[in-house]
Structure formats: structure tokens, C-alpha cells
Design a protein around this nucleic acid. Sequence first.
DNA 1: TGTATATTTCTATAAATATCGAAGTATGAA
DNA 2: TTCATACTTCGATATTTATAGAAATATACA
Lengths: 111, 111
Amino acid sequence: MSDALSGLGALAHETRLAAFRLLVRAGPNGLAAGTIASRLGVGATVMSFHLAELTQAGLVDSRRDGRSIIYAANYKRVGALLDYLIEDCCQGTCGSRANTTKEVSHETDAR
Amino acid sequence: MSDALSGLGALAHETRLAAFRLLVRAGPNGLAAGTIASRLGVGATVMSFHLAELTQAGLVDSRRDGRSIIYAANYKRVGALLDYLIEDCCQGTCGSRANTTKEVSHETDAR
DNA sequence: TGTATATTTCTATAAATATCGAAGTATGAA
DNA sequence: TTCATACTTCGATATTTATAGAAATATACA
């Protein structure tokens, strides 16, 4: 759950969410830090900071390729976060894509 | 996507995530603010602050019942957030529960 | 080797969030 | 009415995050 917390925190920022979406779409090949920065229109320093946050949360990985550092989504970790949200937070009852037919019993008293 | 951002931000805090999980489990009847606070061991002021954040993000609703204010998960909004994450951020490719068999084409160049 | 490129790390500062006690509001009950 | 309960809002302070430029590191290439 601490993983979930840091994952949520990592995605809870405009620039990071945008970068993350680029990376998910880019696929396993990933994108260079500079490419992400210029596509999002942010400076290298700020991009580096945010990519570090995403990395620390485990949502993306990085590797060096020449002068560039290539970031790529860590699909396994992202999936784990989604699974946590769907199962531990929603008991599988929320969402259309996320939804599975499953019986859930709730508590009855609001106090 | 701004909804998603505020939803993620709302969940990205230990106390709020814990409160949210209680509420999801409590079902439509919800739980009184004081109940949540005492179950989580936090003060009324702090709880109120965090419940307000969750409310503002649309993840929970509240209603008054006598002296209590009852909070309940807004399953519809939560589901929408999950759907956004699964479809817009993962293209339906991440997670086991979240996963659906779907062909996805990625970009080929990392630069 | 020297220079340019790509990116990170450092340092300072700014901005957003969180915490806590005190005061305020709404409700119920004596 | 008055008192107690359940919460929220306010105001001050503390803490965490984010931004930006300068300096540092790593690689490539002439």
C-alpha cells in the first residue's frame, strides 16, 4: 500500500501524469528525457525532477543510450497499482472496464 | 483529465487513502466523520480537512444525519477515475484485473 | 584533446499542503 | 433557553513539493 501511495503521488501532478501517458503510449522502447521535456514544453531540470519522482515510485524505468537517458513505463508496476486500486479500494465494484461481476457485502450501519 | 488529477491527488495521502478505503468498504450507507476519525486515530480537524479534499475531488459525497455528517464513496466517480487510468493511461494493457485482451501499437523510436 | 550535447545534481526560493488549537455553526436533548 | 455533541472553518505554523539557474557528470564526435 505504501507502493500505491507513492504511485498515486507520482501521478498526481500535471507534468508527471502527462509524461507518464506519453511513456505508456511510447511502449517498451520508451522516450528520451529531452524528448519528453520538449513535447511537454518544460525545462530539462524540471523534467528531470519529475522523471525522478516517477522512477522512485517505480512507475517508470530508465536506461542510458549514448548521451540520452531513455525512460519507459514499467507496465508491471503500473498494473500492480491498478490492481490494488480495483481490488483493495473498490472491491472490484467500480468502473466499467474495471468492473467484474462480484458479490460484495457492505457494512450496514453508518456510525 | 483534470478530474483524474484531483482524484489522484486526493488519494495520494495516507490518511485520505485509508479513509477512502473505509468508505468503499462501508458501502452506500457510509460512515460518520467522527467514526472515520476515531478508526484512523486522527483529530477531528485533520479528518475534516482530508474529507473535504476527497469531497472536492468528487470521490466521496456527504449528507447530514442529525449531528453527524455521513460520508460515502461516490462509486460512479471512482469508477470513472479507474476507467480513465486503465484506458487513457494504460490503453487497457496493464494489470490483471484491469487487463482486457486488446491489440495496441506503440511508437517505434525512442527519440 | 577540446567542444558540444544530454541530462542530472545542487542550492536557493517559491508555492502548495498539512497540522493543530481556537472559535464558530448546526443539531439534539434536558 | 441552555448545555453537550458533532463537525467545520479560521488562522498560524510547519512541512513537503516544485521551480529555476548554475555547476557537475557522462557521452559523442571532430
